[in-house]
Design a protein around this nucleic acid. Structure first.
Lengths: 184, 184
DNA sequence: GTTGTTCCAGACCATCTGGTCTGTTTGTAC
DNA sequence: GTACAAACAGACCAGATGGTCTGGAACAAC
């Protein structure tokens, strides 16, 4: 589903690739939508796990600016592994389905994004505090730009059929933030 | 299709909403994929039109830095209108379809992205030339980040069910570029 | 008016879709 | 061993899906 999208993935295909049966499938999932819901649950959990990993990686760092930079570098360094493990983002594919707008899944994804945004905002605020020239930048929007970069880069990778675009886009974002923290 | 994705859009639905018939549809399009192909063609043309509009808007400006900023501002100012006109990007929905990877459509989208990237690179290079500290920034990647921001922001808008996120993300990107051009 | 061609309507078809149902196996408590 | 429920296999179903086919308008050329 992450790879092909919800509609393009048939239950028969899921069954074939998992070497089970219709009976088994519908014993564990009440419907195809239910499968998507459970997948989103898992995906959100893993996603928030990645956030924690990033925060843990910078736990020792004191300087606010260095914390932000190291945080972004953490994901930059993990980009290639990420793209090797998954070629797309379940968030994007699920949200592509018009019928899921406003659904439970939509809310889950929105909530996860909010957690990321709040966490990154908390890192950015002290780093930007001593940069009076950067007051016009909305911290919240800047924090959301990490999500934007992730999702956008996934699509760029697809477009160019080049998984390394994830890393280069995360690096670009990091360099831009560094410039802001330098110049702000 | 832009809205719901390729797979989720049935030919019957297209026929119903356009008040025609199966005969008419398959007279003009050899298949459902053919429709997608033609839509991508139109979309690419419109997309490149937007690029030309942005370049035309800054034709009078001499200063390289101001040219870059004004260029980004142009799309920032048009963001709300864009989101009112379309709730998603055909590029993303078509590329979501795994079967289209490496297809003619894929190539068309990649080509359009390349045109954008080259054009924006040409704007960025002179603006960055006098910023010796920004040499570590790959101009090509920075140019591609505009595409990333567009696509990512489309998904963010879906996630948060908030069309204004497109404008705020484009603004954030512009502010980051401004910081780079100030600090670099 | 006749001929020919493009354009279109909608019945029709094979296949696939998500989902149900019946029957069987597997594990387990006693 | 027996009883009982959970776990599973796969035949089966109704409706949807992309696509074809036949018949007839619409329009042009002569």
């Amino acid at each position: 589903m992450t790879d092909q999208g919800y509609s393009a993935t048939s239950v028969d295909q899921v069954i074939a690739e998992s070497s089970t049966s219709k009976g088994a499938f519908f014993h564990h999932f009440s419907s195809k939508t239910d499968l998507a819901r459970r997948l989103v649950e898992r995906y959100v959990a893993a996603d928030l796990g990645h956030l924690d990993a990033g925060l843990a990686a910078i736990a020792e760092i004191e300087d606010p600016v260095q914390r932000v930079v190291a945080f972004l570098r953490f994901y930059e360094d993990g980009a290639d592994a990420l793209m090797a493990a998954q070629s797309g983002c379940l968030y994007a594919t699920v949200l592509a389905e018009r019928g899921f707008t406003g659904s439970d899944m939509n809310r889950q994804v929105a909530k996860a994004e909010q957690v990321w945004r709040d966490a990154f905002s908390d890192l950015l605020r002290p780093a930007l505090a001593s940069r009076p020239r950067a007051t016009d930048v909305e911290v919240d929007d800047l924090a959301a730009h990490l999500y934007t970069t992730f999702e956008g880069a996934f699509i760029l990778c697809r477009t160019m059929q080049d998984p390394s675009a994830m890393r280069s886009q995360l690096r670009t974002f990091r360099q831009l933030v560094e410039a802001l923290l330098r110049a702000g």
